[in-house]
């Protein structure tokens, strides 16, 4: 079955819904890449810092959570966009 016959058999709305689902899934997946790498870097470096200077662990941990929170925001905005495209 070629693409043109598939397109001829589907309703226009159905096709649009399919595109929306693909876009939402891809959008969330893409939005998760950067923050994933970013949080890995933040936590990895925080662990290095804590291992080198255990007496500074409290300060490092607080700063680490701050860094995670800022990095994670991008992924969460991607998640919200996913929810909005799919369900709103």
């Amino acid at each position: 079955m070629t693409l043109s016959t598939v397109l001829a058999q589907t309703e226009p709305g159905e096709f649009l819904d399919g595109l929306k689902a693909i876009g939402a899934g891809l959008g969330y997946g893409l939005a998760a890449i950067g923050p994933g790498i970013g949080i890995g870097l933040v936590v990895g470096n925080a662990i290095t810092a804590m291992a080198r200077q255990p007496e500074a662990a409290g300060m490092v941990r607080t700063t680490m959570f701050l860094g995670i929170a800022f990095t994670e925001a991008l992924a969460l905005i991607g998640f919200v966009v996913f929810i909005l495209i799919n369900f709103a």
Partner: peptide, 13 residues
């Protein structure tokens, strides 16, 4: 915006 969305999206997820 990010303060609100961070809490909201984490709990929704």
């Amino acid at each position: 915006f990010s303060l609100a969305v961070r809490l909201f999206a984490n709990m929704l997820a």
